[in-house]
C-alpha cells in the first residue's frame, strides 16, 4: 500500500506515543508513575492507547507489568464510564483524541485517576457516591405503578427543550472532579465489618457532604415535571440541609468541564431560587 504522501508529511506524526500513567495497586496503597510507549496510529483516542497498553503489558523500559485497569463502556460519550484526568483536566477518555492531545503536549500524554473519588485500582475509581446523591434528591417521578394508566401529562415544547439537556446527564463525575467544594470521602473498612455495615457507614458519610452539581440539576429536572413535583418538598429539604445547594461556591467549573454542556450553573441558580422560596414558606406558611 502506498503511504499517504503529501498529507502525511504535512502533519507531524510521531511513530510512538509516550504515556505516563499514575497507577495504584489498590485502595490505600501508594500511587506511582509508570511510563508506557505505544505505536502511533491515525485517529487514536485515549481508549485505544489504553487497549494497546493492556495488550502489550510492558512499560517503556521493557518491564512486564499488569495491564492498567480502567473503566469504559460505550466509547461514544453517552455512558459516562471512562472519566479520568488527562493532561491535568478531567474528561472522557473516549473523546480525548490523541492527535489533539499531542498538538498541545507533544512529549507525552499524562493519565491519572479522578482525585475526588477513592481509587479502586489504577484509573478506576469508586463513584458510588455519585449515584447515592441521586437517591438523596429522590431523582425520580413517583408514579403509582407500571400498569397501563394512559398517557402522561402534556408537556410543552419549551419545557421539553429546557428539560432534555438536564436529562442528558450521564453521571460521569466530571463536574464533581472539577468542583472545589466537592471533596473526596474515602473510608477504610474496619476489621470485622460486614459488607452491609461498611456500605451503611459509607452512605452515612456521603449523606452530609456536598451532593454535587449533577444531583442539584436532577432535583431541578424532577421538580419541574408535573408529577415529579410531588416530591418537591422532600427534594428541597435535601437541598437545604447539610451538603445542599448552599455548599456551592459558584466557581462554575462544573459547567465548564461538563462533556454534555449541561447548564449546571443555571440549575444551581434555579435550585437556589427554589430553596429561598422554600425557606420562606417553611418559616411563614407552616
Amino acid at each position: 500500500m502506498i503511504a499517504a504522501g503529501p498529507e502525511a508529511t504535512s502533519k507531524r506524526r510521531p511513530s510512538k506515543i509516550n504515556v505516563r500513567v499514575l497507577r495504584q495497586d489498590g485502595p490505600g496503597l501508594p500511587p506511582y508513575w509508570e511510563r508506557h510507549q505505544v505505536e502511533y496510529e491515525p485517529d487514536m483516542n485515549v481508549i485505544s492507547v489504553l487497549q494497546k497498553i493492556a495488550a502489550q503489558a510492558r512499560t517503556s523500559e521493557g518491564n512486564a507489568v499488569a495491564p492498567v485497569a480502567w473503566d469504559c463502556g460505550c466509547l461514544e460519550e453517552v455512558c459516562g464510564s471512562c472519566t479520568m484526568v488527562i493532561n491535568g483536566r478531567v474528561r472522557q477518555s473516549c473523546s480525548a483524541l490523541v492527535d489533539r492531545l499531542l498538538e498541545d503536549h507533544p512529549e507525552e500524554i499524562e493519565l491519572r485517576p479522578m482525585t475526588k473519588f477513592p481509587v479502586i485500582r489504577d484509573l478506576m475509581v469508586d463513584r458510588s457516591r455519585l449515584f447515592h446523591s441521586l437517591k438523596r434528591v429522590k431523582a425520580w417521578v413517583p408514579v403509582d405503578g407500571y400498569f397501563d394508566m394512559g398517557a402522561g401529562p402534556r408537556i410543552s415544547r419549551d419545557e421539553q427543550e429546557q428539560n432534555y439537556p438536564l436529562s442528558q446527564c450521564m453521571s460521569c463525575g466530571c463536574c464533581l472532579e472539577a468542583c472545589p467544594q466537592f471533596n473526596k470521602v474515602e473510608l477504610q473498612r474496619n476489621p470485622g465489618e460486614s459488607d452491609e455495615e461498611f456500605a451503611a457507614r459509607k452512605e452515612a458519610a456521603y449523606s452530609v457532604e456536598f451532593v454535587g452539581p449533577h444531583a442539584i440539576s436532577q432535583a431541578v429536572l424532577f421538580n419541574s415535571h408535573p408529577v415529579g413535583k410531588n416530591l418537591e418538598r422532600e427534594r428541597m429539604e435535601a437541598l437545604t440541609s447539610s451538603g445542599g445547594v448552599q455548599a456551592c461556591g459558584n466557581a462554575q467549573n462544573c459547567v465548564a468541564v461538563c462533556p454534555k454542556e449541561i447548564p449546571l450553573t443555571t440549575s444551581i441558580a434555579r435550585a437556589g431560587r427554589a430553596a429561598t422560596v422554600y425557606a420562606f414558606k417553611k418559616l411563614f406558611d407552616r
Binding site: G152, I155, E159, Q160, Y164, S167, V227
Partner: peptide, 9 residues
C-alpha cells in the same frame, strides 16, 4: 411518558 422521558413534543 409517565416516567418522565423527555420525548420531543
Amino acid at each position: 411518558d409517565r416516567l418522565g422521558v423527555t420525548f420531543n413534543r
